[in-house]
């Protein structure tokens, strides 16, 4: 399977559904080591994204159109740390998604763009207990899957799985970026909300690439 604009739209809508369904969990994670708004923030953003998609006069033509719409909408509705970070991630992803359809390598490029965007804005590296700890292993897994000849769906699935593991892997970490860093040692033992939402977003991409029943 290749990832086309229809897939991109399904991805975004599925993300919105999944974020809404997990809103409370994200907020609860943020309550533990942050300020308890991450679920609310992300849900506000993706609800707005869906509204914008619905309001488009005609369906988006390219994958990059969808990603750009997500980028600008998150930027202007999410606020907090996650807004600019995810906004920039989707913006960079949109820039490299310049083909009508993405193959496995195309998905790798999109994910690399996203990671680059998050790191350009947030300056976090792996191990600082942020969304980078989900996104970075996702990129690595994607590269491997693409090297092994995986198609878009296989690559995305590998990325999502790695992101999920990465998110869980933030539990023992000591936060040194973002709000959780203020807690010092007390940040240990909790899963990072941003890494968790990253895992949800990637998982939604896999659902979107499932063959329709």
């Amino acid at each position: 399977m290749a990832a086309d604009v229809a897939w991109a739209e399904r991805w975004v809508r599925e993300t919105a559904r999944s974020i809404a369904a997990n809103k409370e969990e994200l907020t609860e994670l943020d309550r533990q080591i942050g300020d308890g708004d991450h679920g609310e923030n992300m849900n506000r953003g993706f609800t707005a994204v869906v509204a914008k998609l619905d309001a488009l006069p005609e369906p988006p033509a390219h994958v990059s159109d969808v990603l750009k719409l997500v980028a600008t909408t998150l930027m202007s509705t999410v606020g907090g740390a996650a807004g600019p970070l995810y906004g920039t991630a989707f913006l960079r992803a949109a820039k490299v998604a310049d083909l009508p359809e993405l193959d496995g390598r195309g998905v790798v490029a999109v994910l690399e763009g996203a990671l680059e965007g998050v790191q350009a804005r947030g300056k976090a590296t792996v191990g600082e207990k942020t969304m980078v700890d989900a996104l970075s292993p996702a990129v690595q897994a994607a590269v491997q899957a693409a090297d092994g000849g995986g198609d878009a769906r296989a690559v995305f699935a590998a990325a999502a799985e790695a992101a999920q593991k990465g998110a869980e892997g933030t539990i023992p970490l000591l936060a040194t970026k973002g709000r959780a860093s203020y807690l010092g040692e007390r940040s240990i033992g909790h899963q990072d909300p941003g890494a968790t939402s990253t895992a949800l977003i990637l998982a939604a991409g896999v659902v979107a690439s499932e063959p329709e029943p």
Binding site: D35, G36, D37, E40, N41, R44, M75, S76, T77, V78, G79, G80, A81, G83, P84
Partner: peptide, 12 residues
């Protein structure tokens, strides 16, 4: 003013 405890957005 952003939402409660959440930074406002650039377009604000």
């Amino acid at each position: 003013p952003g939402p409660v405890f959440t930074s406002p957005t650039p377009d604000q």
